[in-house]
Design a protein around this nucleic acid. Structure first.
Lengths: 303, 303
DNA sequence: CTGAAAGCGCTTACAG
DNA sequence: CTGAAAGCGCTTACAG
């Protein structure tokens, strides 16, 4: 075949928009350039950022991702996992809405690599999660740096490891002058907690670290309703950086971002490496959180 | 081959967990049992319910779905569409965050069927969207049935068709005693609107229909802060049924649900039908909204 | 009714 | 260096 012919063929192929059939390729290469994201987070609060990170990392590798939302239904889970295996995904990323619960499906002994992100993984697997302790430390330290000396902690149910980690960080920095207030992940609980705190005798807190943004929002609202100024009288910091809540609070919440997108990116890259046969050390990888400064804590944002 | 042998083979196949390679199957059948969901709704507010509907309708047909979030980046859009076509998806569902904007990618003349859900479609395509006019009618009628006679409408930017449709429905039922207040889709605007309404001379509204739940939340908060009781003095109804906002408002919001999940289900079924070669009438299919009664409008919930 | 062959669209390894 | 063949894992159509 002459140079010229070869060129002509190539040109025509490009012109005509020839695209090789990825399915046929996969049949040979054992690589489908497809991965599955399995989650029970129907609301997408945690899974969407993770998903965004995965896509960001893998889109230009030509990898597409199947999103499978399985609620808490083992049967649905099996259906989705089987469908993914039949389609020969290169790997699976399991995700969820809390780091101390497993998805209702058995992902061990699959013929493809599995990586866990923001959900509890199998013992010898690779698991990514946010560093709750470090994130909480960031928040409480900021309150201390702002000169706050009576810092309270209003948070979610003690059954969550995240809650325990965060309050452990709080305790370490603040001691036990104030009780940690455990409750629901709701605004109702935030209001209740503020009522408790302000009805108690003795000096009131001048800083409140909240277990999530919903609680923080209610705390800020509750304070305003009592005529207490935020951030002048009391500094409030939340957790999650859930835009819809944090940005709409009056004043907008300073809060902790878990960097879920970075987490997704790492998980994506890792599952790809595994799929390509690279060895990856198993274990729990903890990614740092970040302080997002808005207006609910006051002070110089460059502190 | 004896009956017995055939049985034994089948049994062994099941035992050993034999699963046919879907990729190989696809090569022959021209069906990959895979569809793509393309969206620019990074937050997932609208796309996630649509996605849930699609999955619900198609999971037991063995169809998996690629989720592709393309922000507003045409280049990214093309990358994803090409990746999907290479993988021979059976069809594509385009979705978005408003019904009068197109995705930044050309989906005409693709070799696979395309269906639009909650985004503007190509002229001769199948498009699904919620019935804004009917939804707004539901809300305003409810306010009227509750005996409200001075009903105001606080909503988003007039540039949205949804906004214009909803206010057209409002106008039709209420007349023009009150101006329609157009603004941002934010709580800040809700507060501002209440300030305007309550500073104006003359009788105050006794019912407020809001363009979305964020505005409604702020309206309820603003009213409470002015000592106006909701729902005793003023009935408020929102739009969207965005759980995180509607359920946490004090009192929780009565609101309109666009039935996005049903929309996703229809879109999924339709794209599948097209993939199977069935003819589908092009055009815009409008799905009805639903009134979700909580406590912000008062009255008998069975009205 | 059973069993072997041809073919889906590619890539890899091998013979000329 | 070029070109034909074999094969990935299936299904379909055809010959015995």
């Amino acid at each position: 075949m002459a140079e010229e012919t070869r060129d002509r063929v190539k040109r025509m192929a490009a012109e005509i928009g020839f695209r090789p059939n990825a399915l046929a390729k996969s049949l040979l290469s054992n690589r489908s350039f497809t991965i599955g994201l399995l989650t029970n987070d129907t609301y997408g609060r945690f899974t969407l950022p993770v998903m965004a990170g995965i896509t960001e990392a893998l889109a230009d590798h030509g990898v597409s991702v199947f999103l499978c939302t399985i609620e808490d239904d083992p049967a649905l889970g099996k259906v989705h996992v089987d469908a993914m295996l039949d389609k020969h995904v290169d790997g699976i990323i399991a995700s969820g809405k809390r780091i101390d619960r497993r998805l209702p499906v058995d992902l061990s002994n699959l013929p493809v690599p599995v990586v866990y992100a923001f959900t509890e993984g199998a013992p010898d697997s690779v698991t990514f999660c946010a560093d709750d302790f470090q994130g909480a430390t960031l928040a409480v330290k900021r309150l201390i740096e702002l000169g706050r000396r009576r810092i309270a902690h209003v948070t979610g149910p003690e059954s969550f490891v995240s809650v325990r980690e965060r309050s452990r960080a709080y305790r370490g920095l603040v001691g036990d002058a104030f009780p940690v207030l455990y409750g629901e992940w709701s605004e109702a609980w935030g209001h209740e907690a503020i009522a408790k705190l302000w009805m108690a005798p003795g000096p009131k807190p001048d800083g409140i670290f909240c277990g999530n943004d919903q609680i923080a929002r209610a705390v800020v609202d509750g304070l305003r309703e009592r005529g207490v100024r935020v951030p002048e009288d009391v500094s409030v910091i939340g957790f999650d950086n859930w835009e819809i809540v944090a940005a709409q609070t009056r004043p907008p919440l300073t809060t902790i971002d878990m960097n879920l997108k970075a987490l997704g990116r790492e998980a994506g890259l890792t599952v790809l490496a595994l799929a390509e046969g690279h060895a990856v050390e198993p274990g729990i990888r903890t990614l740092p959180c970040e302080l997002i400064v808005r207006q609910s804590c006051g002070g110089d944002s460059k502190l």
